[in-house]
Structures are given as C-alpha cells and as structure tokens.
Design a protein around this nucleic acid. Sequence first.
DNA 1: GAACAAACTGAGCGATCAGTTAATTTTTTA
DNA 2: TAAAAAATTAACTGATCGCTCAGTTTGTTC
Lengths: 204, 204
Amino acid sequence: MGRRKAGGASRKEAILEMATVFFAEKGFRDTAIGDIARMIGVADGTIFYHYKTKEDLFVAVMENFKEQLIRETREYLAGRGEVNGLERIEGLISFYISLAAKLEQRFLLLHRHYPYELAEDNPGCRRHLEDIYDFFTRVFEDAILAGQRDDSIIEIPAHKVALILFTMVDGLVRIGTFRLYQPSALYEELTASCRRMLEKKEGA
Amino acid sequence: MGRRKAGGASRKEAILEMATVFFAEKGFRDTAIGDIARMIGVADGTIFYHYKTKEDLFVAVMENFKEQLIRETREYLAGRGEVNGLERIEGLISFYISLAAKLEQRFLLLHRHYPYELAEDNPGCRRHLEDIYDFFTRVFEDAILAGQRDDSIIEIPAHKVALILFTMVDGLVRIGTFRLYQPSALYEELTASCRRMLEKKEGA
DNA sequence: GAACAAACTGAGCGATCAGTTAATTTTTTA
DNA sequence: TAAAAAATTAACTGATCGCTCAGTTTGTTC
C-alpha cells in the first residue's frame, strides 16, 4: 500500500497538486519534472512511477481541473435562488468572473495555448477541454431557454447566443489577466450590455 | 552590407519572416534557433549576429506583426464607404474576423500566453502588446462616438463598451482556432447581438 | 519472520539547444 | 586595389531535462 503523509494526502495527490501549480504558472514546456519533485521532497522517479509520462501528468491535471470547475459551478447553481432567466444569465456572468478571480492561477490552464495544441493528438486532453466548454455553454443555454419560457428573454437561437456570451465573458477574464485593465471595472457595463442584448421589453 | 538573395530580401528580413512562422506555429520555447536557421539555409550564428538573443528576435517579430495589423486596419478604414456609426461597428467586426482568418497562423502570436508573460519584464514586448490593444480599442471607440453623433448608437460609455466589443470578437476568434466550432457560423448572430446592444430605436 | 508486492529512490543516459568563438568570405570605403 | 567593416559559417560549450533502471524501503499477508 502507498505510504501516507501526515496530512493524509497521498504522494500521488501531492504530485498532481504541485503539477497543477507549475503547469498553470509556467506552462508545460517550462516546467521541469525535477522542479515538481524537489518542491514536494520526492525523487524524480516517483513521479514517473505514478504517471507514465510528463504528458500523462498534464492530462491528469486537466481532468482534475475540469472536475473542479464543474463541481464548483454545480454548487453555485444549486444554491441559487428563484429568479427569471435574464437574472440567471447575469448571475452566471458574475459567478464566472468571481470564479476566475478566485482560481486566477489555475485558469491559466485554460488560457494558455498548449492544452489546445495537445488536444489535437491527445484524445484525453481533447475530451476534457470539450467537456469544459460544452458544460458552460449548456449552462448558459439552459438559462436562455428558461428566460424565453418566463418571457424575460427574447426569441434568439439559444445555443449560438450562449456560445457568444460565454466567449465574451471568458475573453474578458483572459484579457484581464494581462493587467491591461481590471475586468471587474467592466462588470457593470458588461451586464448592462448583456441585458440590452437579451431583454424582452414589456408589451411584446 | 549583407548578401542579398534572389528575391531581394536581406538575410535579416528572411530570418524575421521565418521566425514569425515558427514562433506563431510552435511557440517560443518549442522553437529552436537551429530550426529557423536550417529552414532558410543559414548558420545558427547568423541569427545571433542580427539579433542578440532569441528573446530579442521574438520582440522584433511582435513589433513587425503589430505594424502589419495596424497597417492593414488603416487600409480597411481608408477604403470604407460612408456609413453611420452602427454600420461601422458591424463592418469592423466583420473585418476583424476576416483579418484573423487571413492571418490565422500569425494571430497565434496574440493568442498564446507567452507574449503576455514576457511583457511583464520586457518593456519592448509590453509596448507592442499595449499598442495593439490600444489601437483596436480606439478604432471601436471612435465608431461608437460617431454613432452617438449620428444617432445610430445609444448613449453608453464609449471606451468601456469598445473594450467589451473588442474582447468579444477577439475571444470568438481565439476559441474558433480550437476547432470546437466555426467562428464564421456565429457571425450572423454576433452582429445581430451587437445591434441589439447598441442600436438606438426610432423616436428617442 | 519469510515471502511478496507496492512505493520509492537517484544516478545516469541520450538528446536538445541557446549562445560563443574564431576563422573566413563578402561588401564597402577611401 | 588595399584596408576596413560587415556578414556568415562551422564547430563547440555548457547547461537542461525527460525518462530509464537497478536496486532499496515500506507495509501487508500468511
């Protein structure tokens, strides 16, 4: 059986966590397996015992991050009060921005280009990326459809507009990490813009 | 003076062009100076004669790309017909999408994360990135202000909305390169959404 | 306490690559 | 045309890094 450290976390979990930090912060190529190993006081070989290659380790990191994203979003959706579709959209945008702020470092995993390159010939990696995008697009789409049912949102192609909305908010978060401006400073105007884009006026 | 190749381009220009292709296609770290050199039939040392370091070469590539982006956009703006502000916005979105399609490979220079990391401690690189974002934001902003003067666009904070619009269209282009969907397939709905976001209704 | 399997180690191999150097060739200048 | 300057080359250096592997340690099962 595997040895357990004091904290209760297995070596394998510790490796995955530290790899997440390094891959997000420095990227795949600029992360040396030796750096990860030294940081958690483990031999290089230990990492290769648990993960066959550096690439496999990266894919495991992506899978773990995907699961975290979906879990946290599901928790938000579950704890959300009774509101109409348009308000759900506004809540989602606000939630995504705050999630990206909370997990700023880890979001680099999505905003670097490497994962998308790897996805081209690594089915596991592609799968995780598609899962993430499909999940968020569906969450936005569901809110639009609900809004069309409760008459808060106009008749538009729900899937396409969901894609546009998610792209917009994710793009804003991404460019926000470049420190060219604060994404939160645009938040007010962003929700106002989305409302104009979606809102159904009275007496339609 | 340097030897000239048949085409008339100097070695230095050839190096810059080939470096652009490699840095865009494979990224900074995964591009070996030796690859660039071999591709144009030049010794490694020749590259270091013209550009002191690999990083300097990269910054030169960014500068060159910046100039191309601004030049091509200025040409579009100059050749554009007389239209109102809202139509100018729609034209700009269409132009940006087609420019990104035409220069798909080179746009990776903007959509990779490395340049933004380098910008943190390389003033030259930061300068070029800021120039690019400032330029496009201003172009969108000018169109919004024009639209507010000719009553085609409602009263909104022009700079902030310009940032949102540019982020949205650039984000769409970026995610389009992941092959998860075709950005042109969203074009119709994108312009319709922007119109709803900006358009001033009759009789205000 | 013997036998076994899982977890772990770290030295070392082979390959890659940015940058250097010294010698050579080409071009410019006077 | 000869000296000076610029451009180019091939060979080399030193450092990095992914991965392997032969062997060791640890925990479990009879």
